[in-house]
């Protein structure tokens, strides 16, 4: 474990929504250029943990976070840290595809524009990121079409393209396939495996086959605590904890 470069980490993180204690003393470390899956039954806090890495809880009132969340050596919740800068380094793909109500082309260039990428480079970056996201061939002739007209699977790949266009260091994925059909899911999974060559990926998933197909490491969370973690194969084939065993064999969840 120590030989790997840890890109993103959580140290003794506690999180409350009002009086509700949602994350309890969570420790996690996500190595560079690997896919790490967070699994666990609904309400176990896996999405909450994921969203706290790019400070998506900032807009929600009544959230309290203690402990440290780190990107390399940078404290994500440092008062002086720029949340905007940080979200550029840590991209996120959401559960439901959420393209902007704009054209396909503008969906990619919007992030470039606000982050000050010179307009001259836009065209090239659009093409590159759409290719990286395995969607170029399907949309290259109608870049001016509204993104909302694409199918769900295409929309989600566009959202991934929008994220990789900014060259983030980490991509967080919150059940990216839960709203998609099996074929689109397969495409996205292929994409995830390809993307880890360049990025560090953390993925929340409900689907245990998916975790086994894409993840190098897996964390199992239950009621806000990390119960067990390790290489994906050992979590699924040789769990140390009874709870983990029950979950991965489908006894609850």
């Amino acid at each position: 474990m120590n030989s790997e470069h840890i890109k993103l980490a959580a140290r003794n993180v506690d999180l409350w929504f009002g009086a509700k204690h949602v994350l309890k003393q969570v420790n996690a470390a996500f190595p560079q250029n690997e896919v790490t899956a967070l699994i666990g039954p609904s309400g176990c806090g896996k999405s909450t943990l994921l969203r706290s890495f790019n400070r998506m809880h900032d807009l929600v009132p009544d959230v309290r976070i203690e402990g440290k969340l780190l990107l390399e050596e940078q404290d994500l919740y440092d008062k002086k840290a720029s949340v905007t800068q940080l979200r550029k380094r840590i991209g996120m793909v959401f559960q439901k595809p959420n393209p902007f109500p704009k054209s396909i082309y503008e969906n990619i260039t919007y992030g470039l524009k606000i982050n000050g990428v010179p307009a001259g480079q836009h065209k090239e970056i659009v093409e590159r990121s759409l290719k990286e996201s395995f969607i170029w061939d399907e949309v290259k002739d109608d870049l001016d079409k509204p993104a909302m007209r694409l199918s769900g699977g295409q929309q989600q790949r566009l959202c991934i393209a929008r994220t990789v266009a900014l060259r983030p260091e980490v991509i967080l994925m919150d059940e990216p396939c839960s709203a998609l059909d099996p074929l689109s899911t397969l495409k996205i999974e292929e994409l995830i495996i390809k993307l880890k060559e360049e990025y560090t990926i953390v993925i929340v998933t409900h689907n245990m086959q998916q975790a086994q197909r894409v993840a190098d490491k897996t964390y199992f969370l239950y009621l806000g605590e990390v119960i067990e973690n390790g290489p994906t194969a050992s979590i699924f084939n040789d769990p140390k904890q009874q709870l983990t065993k029950n979950y991965v064999t489908g006894h609850f969840g």
Binding site: L59, T84, Q85, R87, K88, G91, N98, G111
Partner: peptide, 9 residues
């Protein structure tokens, strides 16, 4: 809104 925030808006 989250989509825009997540790309650094």
């Amino acid at each position: 809104r989250e989509a825009a925030l997540a790309i650094g808006a």
